[in-house]
Amino acid sequence: MISWRITILFIHVTAVIVALGGALFSTFALTPVLAQELEPAMRIRVARRVVRRLGTIVLTALGLIVFTGMLNLMYFRAMPLALMIKLALVVVALGLALYQYGRLGAELWRVSASGPDPRFAPLMARFRRVGLTVGAIILIIVYLSLGLTRGAVAAGAFH
């Protein structure tokens, strides 16, 4: 049961769960509660720290996904169409996440450094929109991965 292949696959899947779960929790649970419970100044203080910490988690997870995905490919030893589409989507998701947490996140941090700022709300709205897009792409990648895995099992690749 314990093998390099399973370990790499485990890290890969865990990184997907962390990246997707963290982003979804922030968007659908944390942000609405912050908006309802906190005053604007405190909300911005909390939001900017959440963005920074979430960026650390999501970008690290995406980096791990890419490198463990490359290693997984060595065990898979094939490149079906679904996998090519998946790779293309990974490129798009990674680029969008870098834009979201790198460029937008840094702008949010800079703009909110001195407290409430009129530029914060539209930046945050764009940040959320990009985040939802990244989440949707990751869900499609998960779907494609399940199809690939089932196909590989049917073809006897895991025996």
Partner: peptide, 16 residues
């Protein structure tokens, strides 16, 4: 792809 992922990890480490 690896290079882009590397930049993502470096940004994450710096933010952490």
């Amino acid at each position: 792809l690896g290079g882009v992922a590397l930049i993502a990890i470096v940004i994450a480490a710096s933010a952490a």
